[in-house]
Design a protein around this nucleic acid. Sequence first.
DNA 1: GCATCGAAAATGTGATCACAAAAGAGCCAT
DNA 2: ATGGCTCTTTTGTGATCACATTTTCGATGC
Lengths: 215, 215
Amino acid sequence: MQAAPKPEIAASAHDRVYRGLRTRIMHGQMAPGQALTLRGIGREFDVSMTPAREAVNRLVAEGALTMSSSGRVSTPELSNERIEELAALRALIEVELASRALPRAHIALIDRLQTINATIADVVSNRDSVGYIRTNLEFHRTLYLRAQAPAMLAMAETVWLQLGPTMRALYGRLRRSEPPQYHRLIIAALKAGDEPGLRLAVRSDVTQGLRMLAG
Amino acid sequence: MQAAPKPEIAASAHDRVYRGLRTRIMHGQMAPGQALTLRGIGREFDVSMTPAREAVNRLVAEGALTMSSSGRVSTPELSNERIEELAALRALIEVELASRALPRAHIALIDRLQTINATIADVVSNRDSVGYIRTNLEFHRTLYLRAQAPAMLAMAETVWLQLGPTMRALYGRLRRSEPPQYHRLIIAALKAGDEPGLRLAVRSDVTQGLRMLAG
DNA sequence: GCATCGAAAATGTGATCACAAAAGAGCCAT
DNA sequence: ATGGCTCTTTTGTGATCACATTTTCGATGC
């Protein structure tokens, strides 16, 4: 639930494992229901079971992994009700973040967002669903960083983390070829300083993808 | 970030430690900045360092504890900006939870809320700040449970957890003697089925206490 | 062919240990 | 008295191990 800590030099073993697994889950590189073992993680990251366990427990606490009653961990298979809830949380938090970022959104930020949006068009045409998820999140994070609200951003990222495997399943299934149309609306609202329009655009962008999965 | 799991029979050691520390922090039994050691926790709960570390790491991941660069853990001392952010998050999430609970709020629920509210008046007159925090949270949780939104409730509880030590400092400082007036407004709005009134009452109740600390 | 039972492999949990880094206590010089 | 230095104690980290449980897989019987 904390923003990913940014150690200047130090990188303890469990932090390295945590970060590796976290980005893998958030970017949709793991399918829902995929199992993990502590010894397997340890082998892969060349550490013992102890740091692997710490990383896994942290991800379980954040809802990025689920732990069965026997202690086995796997990526979550979310119910439709939970997907709807998480989408509603994304809408609530990210609309607020966008709204707080609006007064500080200068032209340099908007340029950067447009660059990222162009990248999204690329990865979409390449049918690269992992790249799509990663770049899409980068678009949102770039905007929200301007809100200067680290606790809120951390909350939003936790929701993204929980939705990672589900988004993989979603964007892997529907083979979309068009870039997200709401991103253009977000950029336009930022340029115009139109707060109601921005709120609506962000809400629509966040809700649209998940709606068709849960529906 | 997960709702506290409810094991039917099993209670692993690290879960027992986690739960113990969690309620202690959330209910304001620890002051901001208070330090903890793994060996001390292990002694207190009669376990080795391993489960103590797991519990602590989980609480750090949830933002309930902060970890210094050298690995020392303590309860967080929040800046005013962060308090404002967390209060805004409470407002966002809890207003939504209350709104979702409204259509399902029958008379039995309202009765229970009034009972809890009477208890709050008791503990307030006894100058029992820990009891006040605990009962106040119970009031909110009882209402939000009706929303049938476990992910949102878990988010709200995580925010409570992060604010626990700060709320202790706040309610310990201002020696209030009157019960929270907004709880009555919440109950009245529930009875009347007045959604805008409910949203306003919840927002006011959540924001009022923290505003005077951050301001 | 299929279900069932049992042995073997795999897995999570928690304790213990060695090690390095950090904090603290004590001491001396000024 | 106070500031700085060293030595001792405390503390977190990660590895390893034993144990209980679960899972898996193959053999056996019908």
